[in-house]
Design a binder for these strands. Sequence first.
DNA 1: TTGAAAGCGCTAACAA
DNA 2: TTGTTAGCGCTTTCAA
Lengths: 340, 340
Amino acid sequence: MSNAYNRPDQLSPELRRRVLETARRLGYPGPDPVARSLRTRKAGAVGLLLTENLSYAFRDPAAVGVLEGLALACEDAGVGLHLVPASPGREDVAAVHRAGVDGFVVYSVPDDDPHLAAVLERPVPTVIIDQPSIEGMDRVGPDDAAAVGKIAEHLVSLGHRQVGVICMRLARERNDDFVSATRQSGAHFHVQRTRLEALAVAFSAAGVDWAGVPVVERFDHTVDDGASAARQLLDAYPQITAVICTSDILALGAMAEAERRGLRVPQDLTVTGFDGIAEAERIGLTTVHQPVLEKGKTAGRLLLSSGERSAPKVITLPTELRIGRTSAPPRTVEEPWFGG
Amino acid sequence: MSNAYNRPDQLSPELRRRVLETARRLGYPGPDPVARSLRTRKAGAVGLLLTENLSYAFRDPAAVGVLEGLALACEDAGVGLHLVPASPGREDVAAVHRAGVDGFVVYSVPDDDPHLAAVLERPVPTVIIDQPSIEGMDRVGPDDAAAVGKIAEHLVSLGHRQVGVICMRLARERNDDFVSATRQSGAHFHVQRTRLEALAVAFSAAGVDWAGVPVVERFDHTVDDGASAARQLLDAYPQITAVICTSDILALGAMAEAERRGLRVPQDLTVTGFDGIAEAERIGLTTVHQPVLEKGKTAGRLLLSSGERSAPKVITLPTELRIGRTSAPPRTVEEPWFGG
DNA sequence: TTGAAAGCGCTAACAA
DNA sequence: TTGTTAGCGCTTTCAA
């Protein structure tokens, strides 16, 4: 019987036909996939753990690109992609335990996420995209430090010394405010921490006191939050000549806020992003482009080929500084004894 | 043992602790989700069948919105969302058989899709979004005929009589060309067929001979295809005053082509879309808005509550005509004996 | 070539 | 309160 469905060549066509016809007549709906999975020890699906709020994830083209790439890799391999229900608030880890999958892709979660811990307890291969960075685990992501270094270099060479930073959340607890040095160095999001550290290194090297550089954090990753962060930043530090954002989405918000205040970009204010989403390209945002589709694809392929490896693999994807129309030298300060 | 994991209240905390600790010491990774699913007859996941090419699906905000809504509904219910690997070309239906899910959501597939047939053979509840429309099955979608009727009415009242149509694919076979009457009426995509029929009814009522209205079809759903379709349409029928597109994505392409030809919209050419995606709103496209997020959410909830029903349910979502800056009365033809 | 049976790992019902 | 066992539906091995 099983043979009729799975091994057509192992029995006579005539018998196969008869078996299948009888099965249909009896209302047999075909082999049960779950029972088959139990027996064959193959679920035929890859789990995706994503603890960002879905509404923000689906509105960020960079995240959608990763998702698309992963879905493409799964499609190529003929396996399903199982989105694990998990949101930042919910502590319900059961969904991770319940997921019938052959492996997990973890996309951009904090190092202390309980869902992540649950994934790591599962006896299946796991690939991490972006963060966290865990010793001995497969990971795919850009070289954040180098990428941000390019941005910093660009700004320093333009002459910017008074800069401000807008970053995504640094921990699971909300802090829509300025960030202390402690919070920066203790950030649970590896990507954000690395980017801030790289900025600190680069600007310190240029003679800027990093302790004096304001960093504003936003929990939610939306254009509006980018705008409100820019407002908070510029209200407190109007002398800032460049706003460095750790994502294009936040940078789009900063651009909107600049316009609202009547600041021309880049003449009055320089704004930079990170990711290289289509809309950023369209408006000419100075940013770092990373190949998000490739990131998802690579992670999927890495996971699906993980049987063939023993040593953990970390794949670093290339990034490219894209200088657009939103960065320029800072405006020369009018000397007071010259002006009116 | 099972109780220790699943029914903490059925045994003493002390015993539970001891059992769990011993389990950990022995390297027991927790209950196997597949075996559990087999036993409980619950997979804890919803399947999503989407036979559109992923690259196009993820680039269309209307599709992403549906996906997001569905994912949200699943998250609320604590069940996973299983993307079934299926692309338009691939005839490999096995993935549908292999998916360990408690039900399917089918999103916008042709009525003769083999994957769809495979889904319908599975003994699990199924909800269809948009198409196909199958008697006796749960379905969620807008009233396409009424929605397109509003567009047609709007154009007729503006005075348009010479119109052209750009539509998405009408069958699984590629036909990037003009559409014959037979192909129109025999279209395997219910949504497209309905929209064309509604246009035929409305324009016929306004005294326009529908047989004389050119309809151009595109297999791939991209902005570029919209542009090439507009080119084909306007090259052959330069007298057209309005281009009706069955999606915003196609309309964006038509807009680009109009600009390329030096046609001002709406003075020289009226362009309309369908869906109401954010970018359409941003550029002021005249279109019909449909609540895509709600569509996905509603479908998910409908599926997850399908145990409580017996009669099939068809849910029609509201649509709204949004008149933007891309529609205006046709340019008055300069009478030859007046002009130069 | 065809049929029979063991057992995948779990849960739920029942026995002690 | 705790321990035992049948059986979910399949695949695969082995016997006929």
